[in-house]
Structure formats: structure tokens, C-alpha cells
Design a protein around this nucleic acid. Structure first.
Lengths: 239, 239
DNA sequence: CGACACCTTGAAGAGGTTCAAGAAATGTGG
DNA sequence: CCACATTTCTTGAACCTCTTCAAGGTGTCG
């Protein structure tokens, strides 16, 4: 084992189970290690890629936190998602070999660069990788269905509750608390994602605090009553 | 050429350019013809697949018109899209081998059934098909970004104008008029898709009619002033 | 410490929803 | 082929949620 190669080997990565297929043979895994050649650090506030840039690679997030956003011609902006360690960004670029959204680091981050040509090459040879790529793409479609449901049919409280539950659940899957989280984004970014104005997000937080559902100190949020949040999202199912 | 096989051969299909990859060698195309083994007719009002059903295949629409919709646990419903000839449905099922939405025929329809296992098998061998599948998935992600922008940041008039322009553009690509269309869905379904109530859809149509932008007779819509619709969507760019 | 970005809160206003009623189209069965 | 039931669409009026505008407070970073 060459110590220099360890640094970028998927087989040694603690996020392996989140972003790579499982159940590969050792031989297949060795091939996969060639998938990621380079890592890249992205400073907070800077972009990993931008709308209009040529698409070459998918990016697996190793550390840090991103938002992706699209813009309409007249400058309107919509956050389409927030991504954290183990998640893959750049899928939007495949269809026209151009990125159609911006990926902005909300904290200092590091990503593994996976050249898409290589992904396609390997997934012709490693069935498990092929499955995995298809699932990643499909998962993103299903996630967006959920966002459409949120934007199309929920009221402000339901949106914010859904958002908090989703965030904390993903963080928990990464070993963090089930009840405490630090928001990496501003109220305005939350609002953009949820189709609300920043004032509405702020007010809704305040209402949750009044009701004793959460504690909020700026970007530190502690969930005091998860069941109440679920109840807000899903008024019927009271157990 | 066996006359019986002609019926389900992609190489003879007039929608080929819409749903299949271009630039394949004749040999590759022959393989592709094995992709679709069966067609299926779906009566208006019935489902092609439902939330919770096992996923086995993608479906290329040959004729007819579909809506796809997701439901939340408490019965809320959200139309996630409308699909027409040449488009592919079922992508949501890949990630968990289960469909997560319903596909309902809004008029009598016929689809080509493409078993996904076979798609994966062939796309390991035919690079052009592999690219194509990736692009179809990515295109759906990008489309949904657009819907999120619509739902998150547009007002009722902008949403409906965007919707009409999108529909007529897709119909035009299939050889229909640039200015006339027949809606296959109810006001309620349009509203669900656009995050509006059916009354709001109706009122917004009426306002467009008052302003001389469109003519509406039930589900028959004639666009009188495309530029005005564009202006509504994109107030800045008056050229 | 001061500048800047971010967050909170209030009051007024707008856009969309809800509820209700009636009209128009569509489908069904005799 | 017509009469009736049903679904779909339109329109009005009152209401409600979220937005807009405004001001002040809090936190952070050079």
C-alpha cells in the first residue's frame, strides 16, 4: 500500500457506505479506487461549479455543506437543495454537458472529483456501480418529488417542520444528534428552499419556540418535541 | 423482416428520435429492438403503475397522455408532472425497486414496456444507450428544478403562463400547433401541479382571456399572444 | 471597536384560499 | 336519442396566510 494513494482511496474512506455501492468484490473495489483521482477543497462562500460551466465530473462531498440553486432569466433565485457529507452533486450537468445550477459551499468543504467519463466506463464493467449510479439519479428524482409536494401543498409551519425533521434525520444517519443541529444556511436560504420569505421563516421559528417545540439560538436548533413536529407535518396520524 | 416483429420494433417507430438514442450503428439498433418486448394499452382514468407497486420496467409513452402524482401520508396529493408521447415514465422506481408515485392515463394510451434489467444489460454493451439513460434521468432532475423554481418563487399568473408555454412547446416539438392546444387535464390537476387551487387556475385563465392573451373554451386553448405570455413569465426581458 | 451581515418583530397590504351557488359540459341508462 | 345525474368550470364575497416595508437588535469578523 502506497501511503500517497491512501489519501484518495474509496476503500479507506469512512463515508464509503454513504456514497459507494456495497457488496463489491475486493477486485471490483480496487477498480473503484481509480474512480477518484483528485480531491478539491472549496472555501466557504465559493462555488464548486456554476450554471453554464462545462460538466465533466460528479462530486462526492467528503466534508462540508453545500447548497444548490437555480436562477431564472430575470434573476429570481431558488435553492433546490442542501447537501452534506456522502452526498453527490453535479447530476444536473449530465443531460447537456453543462451545469444548470450553482453549487455553493456554506462551510469549508472537500469533495472527491469523479470524472463522469470514467464513471460511465467503470459502470459498464462493474454492475454494482452501474446499479448504484442509477439509484443515485433516481433517488434525487424522488427527493425532488418530496420537495414539490412541500412547495405545492404545505403551509409555512408544515414546510419548516418537514425541513427540520429531514435535516436532523440526515445528520443522525451521519452520527450526529437526533435532536440538536447547527444550521449552516441563513434564514433567507431556508426561505428560498421552502418557498417562503426570510421573515416568515423567522416568525415560524419563533412560533415553534413559543409552543415549546424547539429551542433556537441563532443557528443552533434543539428539537424539544419531535412528535409535535411530526404532528405539524402530518396532522391526521396522531398515532 | 418478420411482419410480426415490426409492430414492436424501435427501429420502425416514428417516436424513435424522441425516446431513443441517436447515432447508433445498424447493429446496435438491432439490439435495441429487443429492448421492448411488449406494449400495453391503458384506458383513460386507469393507472400504469401505483405508489408501492414493485418496479420492473420503464415505460416509453407511444400514444396518450399521463399525469404522475405523489401523495403524502395524510392524503394530500401533488401532481409532479404531465407526460406525453416519446417521454419516459417510471424513473422514480429505480432507487428502491418500488414505485413512489402513481402514473394515471388522462386519455387512452399505449406504452412500450422496457424491462429495466434489460436496459441495464444493454447499456453495459451499447455506450450510446448508456449515455441516453443517464441523460433521461438527468433531464428529469433538471425539469424538476424548473418546477421547484416555479412553485417556490412565482405568482399565479406566472405559473400558468409558464405551464402553457411549456405544454405548447412540447406539443409543437411533436408536430402540433404552436398556438393551439387541448388540455387533457382538469383545472384541479393543473392547480395541483402548479400549487394553486382550481378556482385560482380558473380565475387566472379568465384574466388572460380578458387581457386578450388567450382564448379559452373549456379545455381548448388558443394562444393569441405568445410574447405577452413570455412577458408575464419574465417581466424584465422585454427585449 | 466599528462595520456589516443576519435575525427578529410589528403593522399594513396583497394574493390566494375558502365557501357557496349556478352554469356548462359530459356521460349514462332507459 | 333524450333525460337525468355527475363532473367540471366559472364567478362572487369574505377571510386568512404570507408578504412587504420598516425599524431595531444581535452576532461576527477584520
Amino acid at each position: 500500500m502506497n501511503p500517497h494513494s491512501i489519501k484518495v482511496a474509496c476503500s479507506n474512506c469512512n463515508l464509503r457506505e454513504l456514497c459507494m455501492p456495497v457488496g463489491l468484490s475486493p477486485e471490483e473495489f480496487n477498480r473503484l479506487d481509480e474512480l477518484v483521482t483528485v480531491r478539491r477543497k472549496i472555501k466557504r462562500g465559493t462555488t464548486l461549479f456554476r450554471n453554464g460551466e462545462k460538466f465533466t465530473s460528479l462530486y462526492a462531498i467528503r466534508t462540508g455543506f453545500f447548497k444548490t440553486c437555480v436562477a431564472s432569466e430575470d434573476g429570481r433565485d431558488q435553492v433546490t437543495g442542501f447537501q452534506m457529507a456522502g452526498e453527490v452533486v453535479g447530476l444536473d450537468g449530465i443531460v447537456n454537458d453543462l451545469h444548470t445550477c450553482d453549487a455553493v459551499a456554506l462551510e469549508d468543504a472537500e469533495v472527491c472529483i469523479m470524472p463522469f467519463e470514467r464513471i460511465e466506463e467503470f459502470s459498464r464493467e462493474v454492475t454494482g456501480l452501474q446499479h448504484h449510479i442509477h439509484k443515485i439519479l433516481s433517488r434525487e428524482i424522488v427527493r425532488e418529488h418530496g420537495v414539490m409536494l412541500l412547495l405545492g401543498s404545505m403551509r409555512a409551519e408544515e414546510r419548516l417542520a418537514t425541513f427540520l425533521l429531514n435535516l436532523v434525520q440526515r445528520l443522525h444517519a451521519r452520527g450526529f444528534s437526533q435532536s440538536e443541529l447547527v444550521l449552516r444556511m441563513t434564514r433567507e436560504e431556508i426561505g428560498s428552499f421552502l418557498g417562503l420569505k426570510l421573515e416568515t421563516v423567522s416568525r415560524t421559528f419563533s412560533r415553534f419556540v413559543e409552543d415549546g417545540v424547539v429551542e433556537v439560538k441563532q443557528r443552533h436548533v434543539r428539537i424539544l418535541n419531535t412528535e409535535a413536529l411530526r404532528e405539524i407535518v402530518n396532522p391526521r396520524a396522531s398515532t
